[in-house]
């Protein structure tokens, strides 16, 4: 399986931070100095210009998730943290890839892109650049299949995620845990 596959070790944290210089360095520095592993990381301004959203996929084998979340929350510019378990998140990722094509393979690549609902965004004499957005597994699968044609360059954005929506009235089964602003009082167990 590709390194990008859904893995129970990987939890997604979406972290709302103040949009100020150096905040990403504070977050990354915290992970580095406490020995937490970052699997992927995506940053962009949020819908409110005062805040940015950092989506971090963490490896919970490197440290207990509880510790990672609480240490993150201690950073002053961190406003709130939403934790998404792998099964409770709608995750998407964008891939850009430039792939080699010959007159024989060009058609196969275009067909593969069509099957995966990707888009060809640039065309050269012997290369194509393809864009594909989808769930991390879908992007993994595409990457596996396109590899045999010869990858010139490939970039993935890292995941972004939102909580899965409730389908029943059962509110006790919340899929996301929101920290920050709230009272952190909690009990073991």
């Amino acid at each position: 399986m590709s390194a990008y596959g859904i893995d129970k070790r990987h939890h997604t944290l979406t972290v709302l931070v103040e949009n100020k210089p150096g905040v990403l360095a504070r977050v990354a520095g915290l992970f580095a100095r406490r020995g937490y592993n970052i699997f992927s990381l995506a940053v962009a301004p949020s819908d409110d210009a005062r805040f940015s959203r950092i989506t971090i996929v963490v490896d919970v084998e490197s440290a207990p998730l509880d510790q990672i979340v609480k240490q993150l929350d201690k950073l002053i510019p961190v406003v709130s943290i939403t934790e998404l378990a792998p099964s409770a998140a709608r995750e998407r990722e964008l891939l850009l890839v430039t792939v080699e094509v010959s007159p024989e393979t060009r058609g196969q690549v275009i067909q593969l892109v069509g099957v995966f609902e990707g888009k060809i965004i640039d065309v050269g004499h012997d290369r194509l650049t393809v864009m594909l957005a989808g769930s991390p597994t879908k992007v993994d699968d595409f990457e596996d299949l396109i590899r045999s044609y010869g990858i010139v360059e490939l970039q993935r954005t890292g995941r972004v995620a939102l909580p899965m929506l409730e389908r029943s009235d059962d509110r006790s089964n919340l899929s996301a845990k929101v920290l920050g602003f709230a009272n952190h009082t909690e009990k073991a167990g």
Binding site: P64, Q67, Q71, D73, E186, A188
Partner: peptide, 12 residues
């Protein structure tokens, strides 16, 4: 809160 359960699991 980050001190809780960091070294030793607390019952309360």
């Amino acid at each position: 809160p980050a001190e809780h359960h960091k070294v030793r699991r607390a019952d309360v």
